[in-house]
Structure formats: structure tokens, C-alpha cells
């Protein structure tokens, strides 16, 4: 177990290194002369040169990358090129909304997947219904789902707020915070539920049809609920959890869209703004956070999987 964690930590460092280096290179190669852009068209050549020197724009990219990396290793993510706002502060502002949104989306996605899977297993017609619905939902872009939700629940019914973040420390407290997160979570959760359901459904189907421990459980004379709860579900949970972990990475693109639509001041929005204003330190800070988060989530997913499923534990530990 410890060895696995160490192994993964090494992998994580490599992944973070490669991704940030790639991003750093791309951002700097593709965006032209940031100094000219930042200063505007009335900048004198001297001013441009001064900003070049200040941002070390004339150094080779690799040197700038290692400068940046060196600062990061000392816990310094730098400040925004435009506002001089510390990147760490931007991140501490942006992480809670994004984190909450992702948790909310997972709750929605998992709940929907479990409910629809249960329906799909139970009867044939519900199976057809929910797989059809899942296919439909899957084919609607998250942006459109979000917009439809706003039109129905905010504009028409006036039930839910369409601006999606209220700090729990503000006057409304957690109550308002949660109410405001309902629609964004649903918009994002709807995007992941079809995949969750597809995997969960086929996994359970597979077990029910093929796994002999299920037959053996039946032959013991157990009730269906007991068979499902003790012999089927636990064997799906591990795979399901590791899938949730993998989905987290895929969720990021949806997060950007949902944060944009519901005006949630999260990481996605922060990075989009940073891309707009070519604010490299902010962009890289956001990216570093996301990559680290994804790698950690995957590790945690794997560890949970191991805890639940002794088979994996055995093979991984001896490996």
C-alpha cells in the first residue's frame, strides 16, 4: 500500500511536470508578444522593452519554465500579470466553488445512475426507457442543458436562482449556498450520469448473468435484496469508484462551461479569464491545481478500490 502510494506520487510529479511544461510552452508560443498586448497600442518601444525585462520574456522558454517551477517549489505561484493579485489568493477564492460544484455534480450523477440502474435491472421497459433517456441526455451539450434548466426553473418558474454561488459565510449561509448550487450541480451531473449508468448497469448485468457467486447466493436461499446488497453491489462499488475518479478529469471541461453559465467564480472561470487576458501565472496556477487534484483523486480512487476489493489489494500489493 505504502509502496503504491509512493509509486503514484512519483508518477504524479512526472505528470504535473509534463503537463505544466507543455502548457507553459504552448501559452508562450501561441500567444504572440504579451507585452504588446498588455500595454496596448500606445505603448512606447521602451515600455514594451521594460515589460519584457520585467516578465523575462526574452529568456528562453525552458529557463522561464524552471524559474517558474523553482518559485512554485518554494510555494510561490506568483502574481497576476494584469492585476498583480497573488495567484494563491485567486486559487483560494476559486477552489471552494469548483469543489462544491464537483461534489454536487457527483452526488447528482451518482444518484441518477443508481436510481436509473435499479430501474433498468428491474424491468425490461424501464431498462429501455432509462437507456433511451440516458442516450438523449448524453447527446445534449452541457451548455444547452444548463440554459434549459435556467429557462425552466429560473425564468419561468422562479424556483431556483440562476447565479450559482453564494459564499456560505455570507448572510444567506449554507441554505442559500446549497439552493444556488442545485441547478449547476444538476447541469453538470446530468452530463456524467449516462456514462455512470452505462458502466454500472452493464457491470451489474454482467454479475447477475455470469457471476457464479450470484448464483451461489441464490442457491443459498437468500432474499433478492440481500443478494443485491451483499453480493452484487459491493463488487460494483470498486470499479464504480475508480470510474468516478477518472471522470473527475473529464468533468473539468464541463465545469468550465457550467461555471460560465451560472457565473460561478470557480477555477474554470478563473482560467478562462486568464486565457482571455493572457495572464500566464494565473493560467499555470489553475492548471497546476487541476492536474494535482486529478492525480490525487485518481490515487484516492485507487486506494478506495483497493480497500473494497481484496482481489485488487492482493495483486497490487504483491506487484
Amino acid at each position: 500500500m505504502l509502496r503504491l502510494i509512493l509509486e503514484r506520487l512519483v508518477q504524479m510529479v512526472i505528470v504535473v511536470f509534463v503537463v505544466t511544461l507543455a502548457a507553459f510552452t504552448l501559452v508562450n508560443l501561441l500567444s504572440g508578444d504579451i507585452a504588446v498586448y498588455l500595454l496596448g497600442d500606445h505603448a512606447t518601444p521602451e515600455a514594451v522593452a521594460a515589460l519584457h525585462a520585467q516578465l523575462h520574456l526574452d529568456d528562453p522558454i525552458i529557463i522561464r519554465y524552471f524559474d517558474w517551477l523553482g518559485d512554485v517549489l518554494q510555494g510561490n505561484l506568483g502574481t497576476s500579470v494584469v492585476s498583480h493579485y497573488p495567484v494563491v489568493k485567486s486559487l483560494t477564492n476559486a477552489i471552494p466553488p469548483t469543489f462544491e460544484l464537483m461534489i454536487g455534480a457527483q452526488i447528482v450523477g451518482i444518484t441518477l445512475a443508481v436510481v436509473t440502474t435499479a430501474a433498468a435491472i428491474k424491468w425490461r421497459w424501464t431498462d429501455r426507457l432509462v437507456t433511451g433517456v440516458a442516450l438523449l441526455v448524453n447527446s445534449i451539450p452541457t451548455f444547452v442543458v444548463a440554459l434549459i434548466l435556467i429557462i425552466i426553473f429560473s425564468t419561468t418558474l422562479h424556483l431556483l436562482p440562476s447565479i450559482g454561488w453564494v459564499a456560505p459565510t455570507s448572510a444567506g449561509g449554507w441554505g442559500k449556498n446549497i439552493v444556488a448550487m442545485i441547478m449547476p450541480s444538476v447541469a453538470l451531473g446530468l452530463g456524467i450520469f449516462p456514462e455512470y449508468m452505462r458502466i454500472l448497469r452493464s457491470d451489474i448485468r454482467e454479475q447477475l448473468d455470469r457471476e457464479e457467486y450470484v448464483t451461489l447466493a441464490w442457491m443459498k436461499g437468500l432474499r433478492p435484496t440481500r443478494i443485491f446488497g451483499k453480493h452484487v453491489a459491493p463488487n460494483s462499488v470498486g470499479g464504480f469508484i475508480s470510474m468516478i475518479a477518472t471522470t473527475t478529469a473529464l468533468l473539468i471541461s464541463g465545469v468550465v462551461i457550467v461555471e460560465q453559465v451560472f457565473a460561478i467564480p470557480g477555477i474554470g472561470k478563473m482560467m478562462l479569464a486568464a486565457i482571455d487576458s493572457h495572464d500566464t501565472p494565473v493560467l499555470l496556477g489553475g492548471l497546476l491545481t487541476i492536474v494535482t487534484f486529478v492525480v490525487i483523486i485518481n490515487l484516492v480512487g485507487e486506494l478506495i478500490y483497493m480497500r473494497i476489493d481484496p482481489r485488487v489489494r492482493a495483486t497490487r500489493v504483491t506487484a
Binding site: 440554459l147 435556467i150 429560473s154 440562476s162 447565479i163
Partner: peptide, 14 residues
């Protein structure tokens, strides 16, 4: 996005 912002005005959020 104009259509999102229109909905935000229409719903009274902004």
C-alpha cells in the same frame, strides 16, 4: 454568451 445573459436578466438574477 448573450442567450445565457438574456435568461439571467429575464429571471431577475441580474
Amino acid at each position: 454568451d448573450p442567450s445565457v445573459n438574456y435568461q439571467q436578466v429575464a429571471s431577475g438574477a441580474i
